[in-house]
Design a protein around this nucleic acid. Sequence first.
DNA 1: GATGAATGAGGTTTCATTCAT
DNA 2: AATGAATGAAACCTCATTCAT
Lengths: 204, 204, 204, 204
Amino acid sequence: MPKETFFNLPEEKRERIINAAIDEFATYPFYQARVTAIAEQAGIAKGSFYQYFEDKKDLFKYLMELSVEKKMSYISHDVVEGKGKYGFFQLLREVYLSGIRFAKDNPRLVAIGIMLLSDKELYTQIYGEYEDTSAEFFRKLLEYGKEQGAVNPEIDSAFVAKMLTGMSIVLTDYIIADGKVDLDDMEIIDQMLHLVENGVKKRD
Amino acid sequence: MPKETFFNLPEEKRERIINAAIDEFATYPFYQARVTAIAEQAGIAKGSFYQYFEDKKDLFKYLMELSVEKKMSYISHDVVEGKGKYGFFQLLREVYLSGIRFAKDNPRLVAIGIMLLSDKELYTQIYGEYEDTSAEFFRKLLEYGKEQGAVNPEIDSAFVAKMLTGMSIVLTDYIIADGKVDLDDMEIIDQMLHLVENGVKKRD
Amino acid sequence: MPKETFFNLPEEKRERIINAAIDEFATYPFYQARVTAIAEQAGIAKGSFYQYFEDKKDLFKYLMELSVEKKMSYISHDVVEGKGKYGFFQLLREVYLSGIRFAKDNPRLVAIGIMLLSDKELYTQIYGEYEDTSAEFFRKLLEYGKEQGAVNPEIDSAFVAKMLTGMSIVLTDYIIADGKVDLDDMEIIDQMLHLVENGVKKRD
Amino acid sequence: MPKETFFNLPEEKRERIINAAIDEFATYPFYQARVTAIAEQAGIAKGSFYQYFEDKKDLFKYLMELSVEKKMSYISHDVVEGKGKYGFFQLLREVYLSGIRFAKDNPRLVAIGIMLLSDKELYTQIYGEYEDTSAEFFRKLLEYGKEQGAVNPEIDSAFVAKMLTGMSIVLTDYIIADGKVDLDDMEIIDQMLHLVENGVKKRD
DNA sequence: GATGAATGAGGTTTCATTCAT
DNA sequence: AATGAATGAAACCTCATTCAT
């Protein structure tokens, strides 16, 4: 957690720092990212860095928090409110859509997140014992789908949740890498959802 | 490519080194992995390391080659011969199965591979211009499925191939993380394949 | 070029570093000179060295610049102003004299310069394409002497310039090695100049 | 001094080694020259090197000996025999000429010699307390010139000897650097000798 | 004698972090 | 709070030399 001093900073400066950090961590894996580079980019003294943050990891952690928070803001808008109104597959669609929007708006944050996923050493150092929040989210959604009768109750929620997570990652990766997906052109998302829908829905 | 001296080594020593390297790279991302640690673990002098390999990257590259080679050996047995005999979904099943077997036998190699995937900087340094071999493999398989009439010709092969890759990764990740999947108990794989099958197959 | 941090240092420290460097480079050829030794002698941390200089070569280059600058200061005083007033042989005498004074005051700098001369590889790395500034200087002086009618126009200025350079080097080398030459006792210099004068001057 | 084993080698191999060594030392200053590179070039095993020579310095020393020997062979032919027959300036001319011929035939050996001159640390390690053989040679020649009545007895033989040495070095350096001097075209040498002659000879 | 693997000291350089102002 | 110099651990890598066959 950043020190108080950081939060007392004028917003503009705080943002300069955050942006510099995002740039650096999106370009280099954690261990290769340099505090010096961040300080330089942000236009602050190296010493100041340590007045705002405990250390490199502290900043990184904070970034991840910001990222989650921001992602939530994308989801909440579309889904959280709508829960109940929507059917399972509609919800799933909204979740993916919000994920895509988030990725398009914050490609560097997504890149950082993906990097982190593959460095379990660091991951546990940051989040404590490994625990896949994202998969957990999908698991609950699936349970809800089962209750609703939209999802085949025989499937293993935990595993399919993993799959949905993985597909979500692939999707966002696809987006930030190639910038291919156009929000107006939803074909691909629909293809994916169609794939999931047919694979997961309850037969009659 | 390792130097000749490496290949002149007694097999036992060569394996000690390879194992030490796999251990280190599976635990730490490339830039955090330490040559010193590898040498120590392998019980060789630091200087010897550089008689066998050009540098750290050289060894890493070699490891990846070994990995691909080994993985191929898993696939070949099941699939390469059978192509033509099998339908698309059977082939896909075989591919996933071989992937799983490989992952169960070589979890650390898989971990290294996954790490590499998320460091594109390093990836291109090693393989030249980024090009997703795995996705390409699945794309061809899908084309084959379309020819066969088993796969819906309307789907975007490139994208679905990405998805299949992603799912494959998730699957193996799942396996090496939790060691949950038991080969005798194929339910989960079948669930995934079922998911894919329904999502991808041609409607009548 | 040293980094800004170096120039922000208190003069006393800067001098300690420069002196340590001169000592080291005067004793060992460039590649044998050790950054560690310089840091130790100067009483700074090894890491600090790299806050002041890009690398070993950076420092070395700077030393050479300092040396040229200092040498210029010896010449300027005697000659630059006097050009026009003096005849060719008087000018030559002044040039050699200033060279000697410089060598007596800065024997280690001279030693470094001489070392550099014999490592053309390094020389071009530092100054770009090899170009003998010193010989060029003498060549111009000789041309001036020809204009003045003091120097035999038949001689090959380029070659004799090389000779004058070489003799200058020998002279300074003689001085820093043995410390023999006493400025009050100019016999030797006069012998040399006499040698040159007779060899070069125009016959009637 | 090389070990006996070296001299037991077939001449062809010995020469391969010597040539490789000359190449390496002519290209890099002693400290940067690599035993490994020499062994490779010569096509011998690294271990063999140490069966022939004590260490790197041993080989280098031997090279210098060879060089002196070879240089002597150039001189002896022209001068040693003729001493007595020739006047001082004729002798001097012969000495320089032989020096030039040697330099043209063995530019790399000359380059090594010049390098060594500027590394006094190494020089004394090799020859013991610094002692300029070459200058000594010229000093004796000058003494002879004085006896003969050809050289002004007032000049300081030691110093002028230094000068003559320096000029000799400059001359050879000029030759190996630019390859400019053509033996058929002796103008330049004559210019230099003329310079010396006028500077040194006895006035009447 | 020939080989080439083995060694390890030591060099340069990087960088997170601390410290003094 | 801000600065930026200072530190030193630690990393990679090189190479002369020794050793065992």
